[in-house]
Amino acid sequence: MKKLLTLATGLSVATAAVMLQPTQAQALPAAPATCVYLREISTGQRAVRQIIALNNSNANTDFAVPTGRSFSSYVAKLIPENNSRYTAEVNLKYNDGSSSRAVSRTIEARRFYLYNQPFRPPTNRQPFQINTRITGSRNTAYQVFVLACP
């Protein structure tokens, strides 16, 4: 009888551990037909998972805006992995070295809830890069991605 209980307990612990581990390969919500998900500049990934480090030293994630297409609106999407307070900023970088802030907000986030933040460039200029800066409590995690639409 003891072996059966040990085995059952071991299975439930193993199952719980698997269910709590977020995966990088989670499916993104479908993009509207004319929109595209931007790719992070260093990894080429569409969705980027970050764990907030001490002093928010890894808070910035940069997404490349494809050339040859014009986009007039964007949607930054955030999926927090913890119930926590996050501060989200979105900055647009232009090819002349200038930048502009499109979003700055604090979110009292619920775990695994999808937060959408639509925005437009504050100028009529096309950015070449979208920077997301997400800060919060140490060791909290989130996924971020950006959708661009004409």
Score class of each variant (00 low, 15 high):
T23L: 11
T23A: 09
T23K: 10
T23D: 09
Q24D: 15
Q24K: 12
Q24L: 14
Q26E: 14
Q26T: 14
A27D: 11
L28S: 07
P29N: 09
P29W: 10
A30T: 15
A30H: 10
P32L: 00
A33L: 04
A33S: 14
A33C: 00
A33I: 12
T34D: 11
C35H: 04
Y37E: 11
Y37G: 09
Y37H: 12
L38W: 10
R39T: 15
R39L: 09
E40N: 08
E40Q: 14
I41A: 01
I41H: 07
S42H: 15
T43N: 08
T43R: 10
G44I: 12
G44P: 05
Q45G: 06
Q45R: 15
R46K: 14
A47F: 10
A47V: 15
V48H: 01
V48N: 02
V48P: 03
R49P: 02
R49Q: 13
R49H: 12
Q50G: 06
I51H: 00
I52C: 02
A53E: 07
N55F: 06
N55I: 03
N55L: 04
N55H: 08
N56I: 03
S57H: 05
S57R: 12
A59K: 12
T61A: 07
T61Q: 12
T61F: 04
D62R: 14
D62I: 14
D62L: 15
F63D: 07
F63W: 11
V65S: 01
P66Y: 07
P66K: 05
T67A: 12
R69D: 08
S70A: 13
S70H: 15
S72T: 15
S73F: 06
Y74H: 06
Y74D: 08
Y74S: 04
V75D: 05
V75H: 02
A76T: 14
A76H: 04
L78E: 09
I79L: 14
I79D: 00
P80W: 00
N82I: 01
N82W: 00
N82Y: 00
N83A: 05
N83V: 06
S84R: 05
R85H: 07
Y86P: 06
Y86T: 04
T87W: 12
T87N: 11
A88T: 13
E89P: 00
V90T: 14
V90W: 03
N91F: 13
L92Y: 03
Y94M: 01
Y94G: 00
Y94L: 05
N95G: 00
D96L: 05
D96V: 09
D96C: 04
D96M: 05
G97I: 13
G97M: 08
S98N: 09
S100H: 00
R101C: 00
A102M: 04
A102C: 02
A102G: 03
V103G: 00
V103P: 00
V103L: 15
S104P: 01
S104H: 11
S104C: 03
S104V: 12
R105A: 10
T106R: 10
T106H: 02
A109V: 08
A109H: 06
R110F: 01
R110S: 11
R111K: 14
R111Y: 02
Y115V: 11
Y115I: 10
N116H: 10
Q117D: 10
